[in-house]
Design a binder for these strands. Structure first.
Lengths: 179, 179
DNA sequence: GCAGAATACATCGCCTCCGAGGTATGTAGC
DNA sequence: GCTACATACCTCGGAGGCGATGTATTCTGC
């Protein structure tokens, strides 16, 4: 997920690590802060795999910067990760949001729609958090207000996302009002 | 988060690992599956720290079971983790839902309310995912439909949760219609 | 009688994440 | 001149998560 964010931001423009960190923090930092000790090793990993290259530039303010640029392989890797996300990237909202944040980099609307349909399929699976035997319990059936909250919130999210998914899919497939 | 779920389920009743796994899978498994190779070492960790004890029983169906019971220290530890969750447990929805799932085990409504107010404070912090310089961008300002989706969904979730939080806080503080 | 699934538990090695700590430079306030 | 902070990068060790794999039993379907 972190690697996806790095690839995603660098796909748009070369950046140095410190700036990258600020962008990632803005994207997911309020939910999950990114430690520097996580980011820099991740950059090294991607460099080692040949997905990005670095050039040193004098720092505009202080220490010299390492400007990071995606290689062709890196650009290809991003498109691959976006087009074929792991199931966890689809089911876990944190990861899914990262996929969404960069999905525009898949230039084929059909490929984008395919990814959205994976999420749609996931959301349409019947699933709950609490069961009585095998039967999923509805919010109304729980007398624990906190567990009721979980179901209420999850339901609201799911409804909003389904609405958004269907209008976006329509528009990607040329059936929308905005093209 | 996994440890919290283990402590939470065992607080309600002694269970063996396999049953524990099914309960945890029902709670968070559709979003984040729990691997056995994660669960069993986690159980060992908690046992080693003296938070739970195991007794072997003949399996009702197949292999013998290890029935896990929380020690007094374990029960105390759960209450502590619920009453003073790490900031990440408050900000990350996955973790937060786990806290909520077991918050009923804090017997003091005031302590429960304190935890909910932490989440409230987090949700009320101004935050976005995308910025133009320092100014947070609203969904309407983005022409990327996917990023617009992120903001739309996050906003719907936030609104639902704020509503739920305020009614639940009211009722915990004796100002509600049901409390 | 045999395959396959479910029950039930476990280890190994790899990978990722993170807190703590370290290095160095430039800017702002007092 | 000193402190504090922002910029900019890095390593180390520990902890946690996970896929692959192993072991043993019982139940179900054919």
């Amino acid at each position: 997920m972190l690697e996806l964010a790095i690839l995603g931001f660098l796909y748009e423009a070369p950046l140095h690590g410190y700036e990258l960190r600020k962008r990632i923090s803005a994207l997911t930092g309020h939910v999950r802060p990114v430690a520097e000790s996580t980011l820099y090793p991740a950059i090294k990993r991607l460099e080692k795999s040949g997905l990005l290259a670095r050039t040193t530039e004098p720092g505009s303010v202080a220490a010299p910067r390492h400007v990071l640029t995606l290689t062709d392989e890196g650009r290809q890797e991003l498109r691959h990760r976006l087009a074929q996300p792991a199931q966890r990237d689809v089911s876990d909202e944190n990861r899914w949001f990262t996929v969404l944040a960069f999905l525009r980099h898949l230039d084929d609307p059909a490929a984008q729609a395919t990814v959205l349909r994976r999420r749609l399929a996931f959301l349409e699976e019947p699933s709950s958090f609490f069961y009585e035997g095998d039967r999923p319990l509805r919010a109304e059936e729980l007398n624990d207000p906190f567990r009721r909250g979980i179901l209420t919130i999850a339901r609201a999210t799911s409804r909003a996302e389904l609405t958004w998914l269907s209008t976006t899919l329509d528009s990607l497939e040329g059936r929308g009002t905005t093209g």
